[in-house]
């Protein structure tokens, strides 16, 4: 019942949102002079604050990239840290222009809540972590287990579906804040911890005895995480989408933050077009942006691979492998449509 009410309220809000939040987000953003970006209020590697109060993370890089594409200046962005529960009303009400908060793309979020998703900046999947002492080797042996899970996420729903479809029982132990879930699991209040696999590796680092826990091989869901915008503003949607694709394309071309200016002299017509060096090209203008938009994005945050390694990969304490997030040509799923 509560859920129905919430859905109705959100759907109603979405209806208002279309009228309340100005339809042309790009004009709005240009007029304001900054992009208001909804980010995670605290997820290592995706959105968090350092000691000086600066935001950092894969999603934060994406916000900066959009600001760089629009203004040529990655500092023209303001962050609204949002919890899992508050993120959708915030986007619907126009409080933020863009939601880059490790949000899973699902059909109901796309239709019912009135959002648009396209690029995926992190392919994730839900996994399980258990204590080794339980002797469990597969998620199918988890019948009757107490499972710690964070509420308000697709994780909670996938968990219910997975146990139901495999005719297993479980006791959910539900919390709103991630650190509450962490503490409960470490204190032994539940046998199993479930969340996106990227998160499980980070969380395992914080446990008292990381060696005594293992992450089970099963991935029970697809979690394509990507930026979301409000429906009904295709121009802004295109800018957000192609900002990500520009980062991927740069990696395909081998353009990095470091060699960017050398690449400007490249004779490769694709690269010239991409970086806005081709005189008659109107790619940037058609997006409503400067022709150097892609150059500005790479200048600000580097290509996708650089951003990945810096925030969640080998350059960070999380050390997550590229896996599914590698380029399509290297066995992953990151694939950008041609920018021409």
């Amino acid at each position: 019942m509560k859920k129905t009410l919430l859905t109705v309220a959100l759907a109603a809000a979405a209806g208002f949102g279309a009228s309340a939040a100005s339809a042309d987000t790009l004009d709005n953003v240009k007029q304001k002079g900054f992009v208001q970006c909804g980010v995670n209020n605290g997820l290592a590697g995706f959105g968090s604050q350092d000691s000086a109060g600066n935001w950092a993370g894969l999603d934060v890089d994406f916000c900066k990239a959009v600001a760089a594409a629009v203004f040529g200046d990655a500092t023209k962005v303001k962050y609204t840290p949002l919890s899992a529960k508050d993120r959708f009303p915030a986007l619907q009400s126009g409080e933020v222009d863009l939601l880059a908060r490790n949000t899973t793309w699902t059909i109901s979020r796309d239709t019912q809540l009135g959002f648009n998703f396209r690029p995926i900046n992190y392919y994730d999947g839900q996994g399980f972590m258990v204590k080794k002492s339980l002797g469990v080797k597969s998620a199918l042996e988890l019948s009757g287990a107490a499972v710690c899970v964070q509420t308000g996420t697709t994780t909670e729903l996938n968990l219910a579906d997975y146990f139901k479809s495999n005719k297993m029982e479980y006791k959910p132990v539900v919390f709103e804040k991630q650190e509450e879930v962490d503490a409960a699991y470490d204190a032994g209040r539940c046998d199993v911890y479930t969340t996106d696999q990227s998160g499980l590796y980070a969380i395992r680092l914080t446990l008292k005895q990381p060696d005594e826990h293992e992450i089970l091989p099963e991935i029970i869901s697809k979690e394509p995480l990507g930026p979301a915008v409000r429906q009904g503003d295709d121009k802004w949607f295109d800018i957000v989408s192609f900002t990500h694709y520009a980062m991927v394309t740069a990696e395909e071309f081998g353009i990095t933050q470091a060699n960017l200016d050398e690449m400007l002299k490249s004779e490769n017509p694709d690269i010239k077009r991409f970086l806005g060096e081709e005189a008659e090209s109107t790619i940037g203008k058609d997006l409503g942006l400067d022709n150097k938009w892609a150059y500005n994005v790479i200048k600000a945050v580097g290509n996708y691979g650089e951003s990945f390694e810096r925030n969640v990969g080998q350059g960070s304490p999380l050390k997550i492998a590229r896996g599914l997030n590698n380029l399509w040509s290297k066995g992953g799923l990151q694939y950008a449509p041609p920018i021409r």
């Binding site: 968090s48 650190e179 503490a183 999380l318």
Partner: peptide
Amino acid sequence: VSIISMYDLLGIVRSSFADANWVSAVTP
């Protein structure tokens, strides 16, 4: 007030746990 994305003392302390440079079992 942290529910409306404003970070008072408790809110900012909690969000600081996510700094990957400081992730550990005892920081929270």
